[in-house]
Nucleic acid binder design. Structure first.
Lengths: 201, 201
DNA sequence: GCAATTCGGGAGCGATCGCTCCCGTATGCG
DNA sequence: CGCATACGGGAGCGATCGCTCCCGAATTGC
């Protein structure tokens, strides 16, 4: 058509994600975004319609990035379930610390800030939660099928607890709690799954 | 002195608490507060200095109210630990539903919204977290001393997990999750404490 | 009763909010 | 080249933000 964009739209969304993630929706102004993304208001609105739409895009981008990474870490089917789980949980509470801790999880922060008031946003946070919940269920079911977990274990109930624990861990990371304490909680959560059944060979 | 106040200051703080609780700090305007508390801006500022000070007072009031109720529920020393714990956890995810669910916990909402950016507020949220953590440690230690929990149980680690679970539960209540799922998580968390030791009589 | 003092109410401050419009410019298509 | 089109930049819109000041009214101590 005509003159092409002089900035990378995806980079801009990434920057917006970081800003919204750190400060939340209401505390981030359009001018803050403009400064961070190196965009004038006109370019910003032409490209992203409005603040709310940009926020939703940022949330979608975060979900895509994180669920990709999570899948990579959870699909290591050849390793012991407990080990995979432990490393994933530890990653969840250290990943935001790319030079800057205390950011927590963008989805959790958003869910608590906006609650159930914003329909579009709630759909996203709920979908993200469901992905994590299902991933945990699958992981545990797989562990039981592989004989790593007791057949007596109610894996769905355990997944429900682990999922709840994940949310709690991310709140605590946001609140600046020590990694040591979080690790204690994680290790105990894994012990919750019970001892490995005696090998049948 | 002179003309006395025509409104009840404590009632006003309570109303402010409800508003901040539901909407968060940034999304609640001084005019919203004025409408809710039936106060003109001048009265509001004369009485509470500014928005931030009122927020801190609201947070303190919430903490006082909740920790009082929590102590009442946790200090029932004559009842089984698991039962006390279960009822307390269930109460935590249903108490905000005084005709209106999805509010979560004011402290958790605040901690995730403001993170570590607001020093005064962070002191409060951290203190509130520490009270809960300690209450759980005491409860479990007491349960072990009473012979209801195994001597092998690492009660401090268990308390760490339970505390993390509490935060997760309150996020999920805020997010509108079914009570049924939360109950599943709670029951599994309690099962985590292991079976009661065989009676020694 | 009188002076002192704080009250509730409202107008309105400067600043910032989300957002729009216009303009000169650079680019792609025929 | 010439036209259409989207660009980056900036001024500025009305609304709302947190907050202040001034007012007449009401209640106290003397």
């Amino acid at each position: 058509m005509a003159r092409p964009r002089q900035f990378d739209e995806e980079n801009a969304v990434t920057s917006a994600t970081h800003l919204f993630w750190r400060r939340g929706y209401h505390a981030t102004s359009v001018r803050d975004l403009g400064d961070e993304l190196k965009l004038t208001p006109s370019s910003l609105y032409r490209t992203f319609t409005d603040k709310h739409t940009l926020f939703v895009r940022a949330l979608d981008r975060y979900r895509a990035t994180e669920s990709l990474e999570a899948r990579r870490r959870l699909d290591a089917t050849d390793r012991p379930v407990r080990e995979v789980l432990r490393e994933w949980l530890l990653w969840l509470v250290t990943c935001p610390a790319d030079g800057e801790s205390g950011r927590g999880c963008f989805v959790v922060n958003t869910a608590t800030e906006l609650g159930t008031t914003d329909e579009k946003v709630q759909q996203r946070t709920e979908a993200a939660f469901e992905v994590t919940r299902q991933a945990l269920r699958s992981l545990l079911a797989e562990g039981r099928d592989h004989g790593e977990l007791s057949g007596d274990l109610d894996t769905d109930a355990a997944a429900e607890l682990l999922f709840t624990t994940v949310l709690g861990l991310r709140v605590r990371e946001r609140a600046g709690h020590d990694l040591e304490h979080l690790t204690t909680a994680i290790d105990f959560a894994i012990r919750t799954l019970g001892p490995a059944p005696a090998a049948s060979c």
